[in-house]
């Protein structure tokens, strides 16, 4: 630990710039609506395939995921079934069959996970495409602002130093309390880089590949992702990864002190703690 101490623990610094904070909350809103309207859209045809088209007939089945309800005849009760790579999982109550007892509905994702709550593909699409545009606009604004104000170079773009420090940082995260300084740790930089420069562009491009209009305009999209239905599956996979990121993100905020973290993302002001103070350069 270097002892070039410039900031004292407990001191309040300015951590997040205004553009970082504004775009952060715009993303939070976009991802919320995109996720729940996306699940609504998925429910209209709750299956994913690999390739150019959807194998929906006997002798041609290229599905990798199917969510549905089975049974309901005779003594066999209706149950929700999720088929992943050909293997059936009973997911009654959440996937395939959900809702209050006695009024269960056969639907892929449950009502609490979709916008609107009832099956309404048209509205799901209206919501999804609006927030898709907003996400793209926010990403563009963020990229430009972060390039100009140095956020991209200082906090996001991973360098050799981050890759070297990655092992130590992973061990630190598995260990005890972490220092909280101005700088992003290697793991943080890499995570935000993957989400902002990897997952968001993946979602945008696979989303565009599902559009027959864009496929005519940019036929390379189909070649890039190996067909419209593969793109749709990758869009779903990207969603799962973004949800995973969100869960870890929230856990880390809670672990690091939710009020201090929340304040830094609202006002930019952040109280540094632990050894991190020493790391400030």
């Amino acid at each position: 630990m270097r002892e070039t101490e410039l900031k004292q623990p407990g001191e309040v610094i300015r951590r997040h710039g205004p553009w970082t904070r504004i775009t952060h909350w715009l993303w939070a809103i976009c991802v919320f609506f995109l996720l729940l309207s996306g699940l609504q859209i998925f429910n209209a045809h709750p299956a994913l395939y690999l390739g150019r088209q959807s194998g929906m007939s006997q002798g041609f089945d290229n599905a990798v995921l199917r969510i549905g309800a089975e049974g309901g005849q005779g003594a066999a009760p209706l149950r929700g079934v999720t088929q992943v790579f050909g293997r059936d999982l009973d997911t009654t109550g959440v996937l395939g069959l959900s809702g209050p007892d006695g009024a269960q509905q056969a639907r892929a994702f449950p009502a609490w996970a979709t916008i609107p709550s009832e099956q309404d593909l048209a509205t799901g699409r209206v919501v999804h495409f609006f927030f898709a545009w907003l996400l793209v606009a926010t990403l563009a604004v963020w990229a430009l602002a972060s390039l100009l104000n140095g956020h991209l170079r200082r906090d996001i773009w991973p360098g050799r130093r981050d890759l070297r420090g990655l092992g130590a940082d992973i061990r630190a995260h598995l260990g005890g309390p972490l220092p909280h300084g101005r700088r992003y740790s290697p793991l943080q930089r890499l995570t935000y880089f993957v989400v902002l420069a990897g997952l968001f562009p993946l979602m945008i491009l696979t989303g565009l590949t599902m559009s027959p209009g864009m496929d005519a305009a940019w036929p390379w999209l189909l070649d890039l992702f190996g067909g419209r239905q593969t793109a749709r599956s990758l869009h779903f996979l990207g969603m799962l990864l973004i949800v995973s990121f969100f869960v870890v993100h929230i856990v880390m905020v809670l672990a690091a002190g939710p009020l201090n973290e929340m304040r830094s993302m609202l006002t930019g002001r952040y109280r540094i703690r632990g050894h991190a103070a020493a790391e400030e350069e």
């Binding site: 009502a111 979709t114 609107p116 709550s117 009832e118 209206v126 495409f129 609006f130």
Partner: peptide, 27 residues
């Protein structure tokens, strides 16, 4: 409360829906 909160968007006459659907013109 889940997404019943936004069920009003299903109403074709809701002004918020009009705002959202305007994105289709942009598309």
């Amino acid at each position: 409360t889940g997404c019943k909160t936004f069920d009003f968007l299903s109403n074709p006459d809701d002004p918020a829906r009009d705002v959202l659907i305007s994105a289709n013109r942009l598309t």
